[in-house]
Computed example of a mutant assay.
Amino acid sequence: MKRSASSIAASLVLAGLLAGCSTVSPEAKVRDKLIAAGVKPHMAGCMADKLVHKLDYSELKELNRVAKLPREHPGALSFDELTYRLQALNNPHIVSVVTRAGLGCAIAG
């Protein structure tokens, strides 16, 4: 059975669209991690957008590592604990971006 060029092209476009729908945006991944750490969903969404645009991939990985919690205590990361862990990274840029994002989102409500 022969397929026409337009049929093949349509199939490729459809496959590309479906593949695009199945990928999760970096903002969504960061938002989900923040929620898992105990940040309220609205605040997490606000912060995730800012963090993804201000931190590079390696900094996001560092932030993810420092914010991980033991599985038995999801959502238990206090602000003081987060601050302590951020300072331990010894990366002033990450500390600044996270602090500004948190304060900005808290003020924006």
Rank of each mutant, 00 (worst) to 15 (best):
H93W: 02
E62R: 06
K29S: 12
V97R: 01
T99D: 06
A106W: 04
N90D: 15
L77G: 03
L17K: 04
V95I: 15
N64C: 01
S22Y: 10
A15V: 07
D56E: 06
H53R: 15
G75Q: 05
A37Q: 01
G102N: 02
E59A: 09
H42F: 08
L34R: 03
E72S: 10
Q87H: 12
K61T: 07
Y84K: 14
A15E: 08
S11Y: 09
C21L: 14
Q87F: 07
T23R: 11
V52N: 04
A5L: 14
E62S: 15
R31E: 15
V13H: 10
F79M: 07
G104A: 02
R31P: 00
R65K: 10
M47F: 04
R3W: 12
L18P: 02
E72Q: 08
L69V: 11
N91E: 06
V30S: 09
C21F: 14
I107F: 03
K2P: 08
S7M: 11
L63V: 00
L34W: 03
G75W: 09
P41A: 10
L60D: 05
S58A: 10
P41T: 04
D49G: 06
D49N: 09
R85N: 05
V95E: 11
G16M: 12
S22A: 13
H93D: 05
V39K: 02
S4C: 00
S96R: 11
S96Q: 13
C105G: 00
D32T: 10
E72P: 00
A44D: 00
E81I: 09
V13T: 10
S58F: 11
Q87W: 02
